[in-house]
């Protein structure tokens, strides 16, 4: 499909639940779907930055994520 990054499918929302990111009934026909959230993970698998919006229309912009990455790469 032309993606240059992996697009993973969490069909039963198992991972979404494990990350406590389930938004009950917010999907089409009242389905449970993920709330938007972005995590920056370092090479050791440790979370270094999180963006959890309080408005589902507002997501992290690419430049925000890049800035978060650049700020932390030296640590």
């Amino acid at each position: 499909m032309g993606f240059t990054y992996p697009l993973l499918s969490d069909a039963d929302a198992g991972v979404i639940r494990r990350y406590d990111l389930l938004h009950r009934g917010a999907g089409p026909k009242g389905a449970d779907i993920a709330r938007p959230a972005e995590f920056l993970i370092d090479s050791q698998g440790i979370i270094r930055w999180v963006n959890s919006t309080d408005n589902i229309a507002v997501r992290a912009r690419p430049e925000q994520v890049l800035a978060a990455f650049n700020e932390r790469r030296g640590d």
Partner: peptide
């Protein structure tokens, strides 16, 4: 938006 109080935090392992 749900509060997601148990979502993984900074410093935790994903």
């Amino acid at each position: 938006v749900p509060a997601s109080l148990s979502a993984p935090r900074i410093g935790e392992k994903a």
